[in-house]
Amino acid sequence: MTPARLNPFRSERIESLAFRPTGPGQDLAGIQERWEKAGRRGAVVGPHGSGKTTLVEQLGRRLGDTTWVDVRPGVAPVTSSSVLLLDGLERLPWLTRRSWLAACCAPGLIATLHRPGCGLPVLLRTTTTPDVLENLVAELLGQPVDDHRAAECRRLFAEHRGDLRACLETLYRRWAGEESG
């Protein structure tokens, strides 16, 4: 049994991973430029576990003065003097999303969405590849992945349909000895 504090896939290490661009124009400077041109409003769009939240957190650090909002039913629209980073907008009923956004008052906003919508320009569509997973695993293990580990990454990627967070959670359990690989 590997104690949790030594598990290379523990949450604080996952949360410290940087977003991995998978194509051109996905660097932070390019995304910020598109956001500025779009009137400082936009969305990062992608499926579960594709790095949307990680990317928006990094954009937030780059922008400096930001307010993180975990959107959910019951949370009122926000008035803020800083840029709003909105996560979980899709938890709101479909019909209320646009009106909720319109009622927010801030000098800019960036939202994460699973699909384009809410009248927000798409700043980036996040995608994943088995190579990205391999790259993340190598960073967490502190060494290049061998053939066996690379094959495990490809299997996991397929099983979880590209959801990198789910892949890393499975690796945590395997490392902890709860599940055989």
Binding site: R5, N7, R10, S11, E12, E15, E169, Y172, R173, A176
Partner: peptide, 8 residues
Amino acid sequence: HTSGKASR
């Protein structure tokens, strides 16, 4: 602090 699978 905690360390492990869940958030800290």
